[in-house]
Amino acid sequence: MRNKLYMVIPCYNEQEVLPETSKRLKEKLSTLVKAGKIDPESRIIFVNDGSKDRTWEIIRRLHEEDPVFGGVNLSRNRGHQNALLAGLMTVKDHADMAISMDADLQDDINAIDEMVEKYLNGTDIVYGVRSSRAKDTFFKKATAEGFYKLMNTMGVNTVFNHADYRLMSKRALEGLAEFREVNLFLRGIVPMIGYSTDVVYYERGERFAGESKYPLGKMLSFAIEGITSLSTKPIRMITFLGFFIFLVSIGILIYSLVRHFMGATIVGWTTLMVSVWAIGGLILLSLGVVGEYIGKIYLETKARPRFLIEEFLNDTENAKKPEEKTER
């Protein structure tokens, strides 16, 4: 059977939720295997993103007790996006399809059935999309929806109300491997892959246990990372601002000259005003032009490893040593 599914679950300090998460995911995997939808060799892979608690200890124990569970242990904390990519790139040679989701059980695991069904019908990428935000506070709903609108305005193609709950075929995973950005924003990169796509709507629940790993500060940082890693529009806006201020400086020049010849000014005022506005406009204009090039260079020249894998637990393969799984 050639429908081997690998579930990839990034984990950072998730010792409180892992026992329940592993139980529910195993039940879902067993149901799909019994229904003949996926291969019996399908696996659940937890990615430990440098956790400071017992997360990796629990993952190792789960693997020892049941081969359906596997683990990827990163050498240190690399952030959610890098951890997710590490898991996907590690399993892409073993899986026919991979589903990524968070460990906190907020994503409805029952949506997996429909995702797999769409894959079997020929879809390469299936996005899990929230059907509503009725349970969110007004602030959370406004900021989240504003985030997606801002991203699209800035030229970053995202799926509205989609996080990182998605299914990707082997072909889509191989396509993702071709993207070499160090500054990762997978919600914007995955739509760039192309291929056939579809969506599955689900109701997002409350976190099962523990605390959110994305407070407001991290969410703002995440948004900035997404915009700056996939769009040069902010830099282009500086260019437009430079043009605007330069035009304003011309207006100020005309105004100052008129006031000068009318004798309604003091000595040196005209020169000072024109100099401040003209030079300010020219500086912003110059920064914008230079910034256009710096922005493009910035997106291409960084070549630091995106993650280093210390250990890979998977019964179908021997554990990989760190040097064997260094992703750039």
Rank of each mutant, 00 (worst) to 15 (best):
V200N: 04
P191V: 15
W269Q: 00
Y202K: 13
A172S: 12
V190C: 11
F244L: 12
T228R: 05
R236Q: 11
A172Y: 03
T197K: 03
A163F: 14
I245E: 12
M262Y: 08
V200R: 05
M168R: 02
A209N: 05
E225F: 05
R187W: 07
V274S: 05
L176D: 08
V248A: 07
G217Q: 06
L241Y: 14
G205N: 09
F179H: 10
F179L: 05
G217R: 08
V258R: 08
I254K: 01
V248P: 07
S221C: 14
F246W: 14
L253Q: 05
P191Y: 13
G194L: 14
F246A: 06
L253A: 09
L230V: 04
V156C: 11
K213N: 15
L167M: 14
N161H: 10
P191G: 10
A264E: 09
S169P: 07
E211C: 06
V258N: 12
M262Q: 05
V190W: 02
E211T: 08
Y165T: 04
V182Q: 14
Y255W: 15
F243P: 02
F208V: 00
A209G: 06
V199S: 13
I224K: 07
N157W: 15
G155Q: 10
G210W: 06
L241H: 12
F208A: 03
S221L: 11
T271N: 07
T271S: 01
V199I: 13
S212N: 09
V200S: 09
